[in-house]
């Protein structure tokens, strides 16, 4: 049964200080993490509270209750559930979830001739979703727009398809789907469903490469492979952590990311954030994939 949020309620001041915060590069608080006698409370300011109750004796099972604020719609709460809460709990339970988008790309030279996945990591608003949409528009179906869910199988990392939606700002949506694309509000991201113009992948694909989008929005197009140590250091901040004080969990998480950094090539990808540049970026990534 699909998870649903509870009735809206205002966010009252909590009696204790958060033990962790997510802070955006611009300095505003995106999420606060509190301890609760039942488990954890994760607050997304002005958006929603999520209570994570840890079921005793069930080996890492959780009961999740989410309350949107009165000014937050159900769709936003669901996005927080899928794009933050689920990956946070997935990593806490021994999974491997990263913040990023991913697309399918056929790799002709691989002996199995199988389509592979290419993942794009980066800070919020760094262009991950638009880049994934650009690949989809060019015939490379997207697998996910915000959460990279990896499962190890036979020495590979299978990247699971997530929701068949891209969350886009109006200008990106109009670039990808046409200038007459209708949007309710041009100032916030909205869900755009997959379709003929933006195909969605139909199954898990083996991860071939990871690209980390640079922060210089006016940089020239370049791709540089990270050393294995650099790769580990750039993967760490792109993973979701529930409890920064749970050292046993962090040890396991560090080990899984260290394995990933050694098994999958990881690259720095810089490019000018200009829609006209996207075809060149796609060509460069696909060329690098073919040569990899």
């Amino acid at each position: 049964m699909e998870w649903e949020p509870d009735s809206p309620r205002p966010q009252v001041e909590l009696p204790r200080e958060p033990y962790d915060r997510w802070v955006s590069p611009a300095g505003y608080c995106q999420a606060e993490f509190y301890r609760d006698e039942r488990g954890y409370l994760i607050r997304f300011p002005s958006q929603a509270d999520f209570l994570i109750e840890v079921k005793s004796g069930d080996g890492g099972e959780f009961r999740i209750t989410g309350w949107p604020t009165p000014q937050c719609d159900a769709k936003t709460t669901l996005n927080l559930y899928h794009n933050a809460i689920q990956p946070i709990l997935g990593n806490h339970s021994g999974g491997l979830f990263l913040h990023g988008s991913a697309v399918c790309a056929r790799v002709e030279h691989h002996s199995d001739g199988e389509e592979g996945a290419v993942a794009f990591l980066g800070l919020s608003r760094s262009g991950k979703t638009t880049l994934a949409g650009s690949f989809a528009q060019a015939g490379h179906p997207f697998l996910t727009e915000d959460v990279i869910d990896l499962a190890r199988s036979d020495g590979r990392y299978l990247l699971q398809p997530k929701r068949s939606k891209l969350r886009l700002f109006a200008d990106s949506a109009r670039h990808l789907l046409g200038r007459d694309t209708e949007f309710e509000n041009d100032d916030i991201k909205q869900d755009v469903d997959a379709g003929a113009g933006l195909p969605f992948a139909d199954g898990a694909k083996p991860l071939r490469q990871i690209y980390v989008l640079g922060t210089d929005l006016r940089a020239d197009l370049s791709i540089r492979q990270f050393s294995l140590q650099e790769a580990l250091s750039v993967l760490l901040p792109n993973a979701f952590i529930l409890d920064v004080e749970d050292k046993a969990s962090l040890r396991g998480h560090f080990g899984r990311l260290a394995d990933l950094s050694q098994d999958i090539p990881c690259y720095a990808l810089d490019f000018m954030r200009d829609y006209s540049e996207l075809p060149r970026v796609r060509k460069a990534v696909l060329g690098n994939l073919a040569n990899g």
Binding site: L228, Q229, S233, L250, F254, Q262
Partner: peptide, 19 residues
């Protein structure tokens, strides 16, 4: 926590998050 990665040892300080 420490792991050898590509012939070098990478350390993560769990208290500070620094590596």
């Amino acid at each position: 926590v420490a792991r050898e990665v590509g012939g070098e040892m990478v350390l993560l300080d769990l208290s500070s998050g620094q590596y």
